[in-house]
Design a protein around this nucleic acid. Structure first.
Length: 442
RNA sequence: GUGAUUGUAGCUCAGUUGGUUAGAGCGCUAGUUUGUGGCACUAGAGGUCGCCGGUUCGAACCCGGUCUUUCACCCCA
């Protein structure tokens, strides 16, 4: 029995996850990100209020214990809620911001860190959604340059390319959304405007208009609608936007930054990864202020497998004003599911033993144990069957464990100082001196 | 948080309008085979029918509640 939305991870799962994590880690490290970890529990006041109302609802709170709990016995729910001291990490970004401020004397700007840890959300589980899951984040804080956004996009590209997952990265910019809202006459209703627009893929244009109508946003002019519905590459769309938003001051930053990004990427392109400018991309987290990204796997039935963006002042709430940060996140669990769907994993991924020493009797198994130690010291993975069970049982175990070779060492072999080596795939076997075992296996 | 959906052996699932002792396949254990796997045959173990309550002479089956699974919405990785 497990709490809902949690899973046991079996050896095959772990092998797959390790494979993914290794690929991503290598890319992070090539880009000079360095790994950190932060505690699973944070102070409630550190986390609450940082993720909007929805986030507060989904955060796992830690109940006080002992006397503190007793003292809450007759209090109101509201009072109890306000006295909760600890909560489980909800994402990796806010704890990172907290750490940057706490550890400001021990870090060096620009500070690039990566972090691969579990986070917890008290959501209702469904496809690709768990209550305990793993995020792989790379963020940089310090002097802000659009070159960082370009770098992060390359990290996405290279990681997913290595993992053999075809992806599409969708890109947008908060200031563009603001400019568009202004153009649409909804500048005072930016949130409702973007939330509605974000649903375009799901509910279609008419649905979006309906949502806007309910939020009191005036009808959209046809030319603005056309603009909002346009999707395409940065190169193609940017000139159109530059023209349309020319006179809107709030869009200026977005246009400038995307123009810079475009020139960087035209010199160092993202290979076969599709980058699309998608004006309907909003992303919920309310601290994003610049570029925003979202990654989805092509040909897989799964939501986004990664996302991120720039936040100009995340550390401000912890007492360090105007420190800019930009980061991305990989959803490990969803990536694993997508790779299973798309058959993207190589075959030889699980690290099984390469050799099993059958156990025929105690005297022989002592020699087998010694030989196994010798093979291990030469880098070979092997194991000795622990008891003198029936051969059938031992072979069965080897086959089911995907162990390709069986060493048989019983009384006959022992007396001749030999071993018998059986190839379990072909059934071929031969006997030779114990001294030759490594040579024959390698 | 909203709306559906699922729960019977280790796994996948049957189970008649409510009626005696709840079944199958696969898997597992043992044997046919005392040192050789995938096949075959034989035998065996394994179930408070998710849980609590109700209706009934009688409930796996009907009703209520609850937990769980899966899915969609919300939101997100």
């Amino acid at each position: 029995m497990l709490p809902k939305g949690t899973r046991d991870l079996l050896p095959d799962d772990m092998a797959k996850r390790k494979y993914i994590v290794n690929a991503i880690t290598e890319v992070f490290e090539q880009h000079a990100f360095r790994q950190i970890e932060t505690p699973a529990i944070e102070l409630n006041k550190t986390l609450s209020g940082k993720y909007g109302e929805e986030g507060d609802r989904l955060m796992f709170k830690v109940l006080p214990r002992g006397e503190k709990l007793n003292s809450l016995a007759n209090q109101s729910i509201e009072f109890i809620k306000s006295n909760i001291e600890e909560a489980l990490r909800y994402d990796l970004t806010v704890p990172f911001a907290r750490m940057v401020v706490d550890q400001r004397n021990h870090i060096n700007l620009p500070f690039k860190r990566y972090q691969i840890q579990n986070v917890w959300r008290a959501d209702r589980p469904q496809k690709g959604r768990f209550r305990e899951f793993t995020q792989c984040d790379a963020d940089v804080v310090g002097p802000a340059g659009i070159i960082q956004e370009a770098e992060l996009l390359h990290i996405y590209h290279r990681s997913f390319h290595t993992l053999n997952i075809p992806v599409e990265i969708r890109l947008n910019h908060r200031s563009l959304l603001q400019g568009l809202a202004e153009l649409a006459g909804a500048s005072d209703k930016l949130v409702a405007f973007t939330i509605g627009l974000d649903k375009l893929d799901k509910i279609g244009w008419n649905g979006v208009e309906e949502e806007w109508r309910q939020a009191g946003i005036p009808d959209i002019q046809p030319e603005v609608k056309e603009l909002l519905l346009t999707k395409g590459t940065l190169e193609k769309l940017l000139p159109i936007l530059e023209k349309a938003l020319e006179s809107i001051p709030s869009a200026k930053r977005g246009l400038l930054e995307l123009r810079q990004l475009s020139s960087i990427l035209s010199n160092a392109p993202l290979g076969n990864t599709a980058l699309k400018l998608d004006l309907s991309l909003a992303r919920g987290l309310n601290y994003y202020t610049g570029c925003i990204f979202e990654v989805s796997a092509l040909g897989a039935d799964m939501g986004s497998i990664g996302g991120g963006g720039r936040y100009d002042d995340l550390t401000g709430i912890f007492g360090w004003k105007d420190l800019s940060g930009v980061g991305i996140s990989f959803g490990l669990d969803r990536i694993q599911l997508v790779m299973e769907q798309l058959n993207s994993f190589p075959n030889d991924i699980g690290l099984n033993a390469e050799v099993l020493f059958a156990n025929m009797d105690e005297a022989s198994s002592i020699i087998g144990f010694k030989l196994a130690q010798e093979l291990r010291s030469k880098g070979m993975r092997c194991e000795v069957y622990p008891v003198a069970a029936k051969m059938k049982k031992q072979i069965d175990f080897a086959v089911k464990s995907n162990i390709p070779f069986l060493v048989i060492l019983g009384e006959n072999e022992r007396l001749n100082q030999e071993v018998t080596l059986r190839n379990l795939a072909t059934g071929e076997q031969s006997s030779f001196s114990q001294n030759d075992l490594y040579e024959k296996l390698k």
